[in-house]
Design a protein around this nucleic acid. Structure first.
Lengths: 127, 127
DNA sequence: ACAATATGTAAACACTTGATTACATAAATA
DNA sequence: TATTTATGTAATCAAGTGTTTACATATTGT
């Protein structure tokens, strides 16, 4: 409960992801948010607290209402992390070896050269 | 334990994220992976199982060894989700209203027109 | 002033999670 | 064949999580 949560844990919960999507383009106060979900208001209140503590939303109090607004910049940590793997999935290579070839010989247009390197544990078929 | 986990939960654990990074460019068998961490092998074994069940890694068995390889395509769900917010944080707007203006009047180069709309809950200051 | 509204918080609870230790099994190796 | 190696699994446990109900507090409206 008092544990330090990070952004990845914050977005691990589906309800919290829905909250993020819900207020992405429209600030809403807590009750308005809670109306979109089956769970009770205190449950949403807790989710909001977590999102706030992780810097994913900001809260602006006006009178008795607290408007929650997305703080998109701080989702960047997630984006940055997952982006480091984009190069992997965007290469249409079907084997690790081909990937290595492409990576290590970028000068050539043809990264699919079939040359074999000395045997290495990672070059075994099916990896 | 038997719960259906999704990709977001899979990457919520820091150890699992480290495993993903570790094998991103190099398939490794389970013991090799475990050597990189403080926790015991069974703990890593369980993480591997979760990553596998979430489609983040594939496992190729050769003899008694199981080589874990990243399956980067399936990290795409995360990338796709977080990408939907990129437009938000890449806009250097400092208020929601300005964001709306920019969004609703893209024809104009100047999205910062100060025109006011009829009062609405979302237009209160500080949101 | 009083009632309604918006929200926080605490206690309680079931369930999940991440971890360990101990044991089991299959494959490689001496 | 006996031993080491790579790995899975089960039992157990402490902590953490998400939720509810019940109550408290501050603000707004009548």
């Amino acid at each position: 409960m008092e544990t330090r949560r990070d952004v990845f844990q914050a977005i691990a919960d589906p309800t919290r992801r829905q909250i993020i999507s819900l207020i992405a383009h429209k600030s809403m106060n807590l009750n308005a948010i809670a109306e979109h979900f089956e769970v009770t208001r205190p449950a949403i209140s807790n989710h909001i607290k977590i999102l706030y503590e992780c810097g994913i939303i900001s809260i602006a109090q006006t009178g008795r209402e607290r408007f929650c607004r997305i703080q998109p910049k701080n989702l960047r940590e997630v984006a940055d992390w997952v982006e480091t793997f984009r190069e992997l999935w965007e290469q249409k290579l079907d084997s690790f070896e081909e990937y290595l070839n492409a990576l290590h010989s970028k000068r050539k247009k043809n990264g699919k050269a079939k040359r074999r390197r000395k045997s290495h544990i990672d070059t075994k078929k099916n990896l």
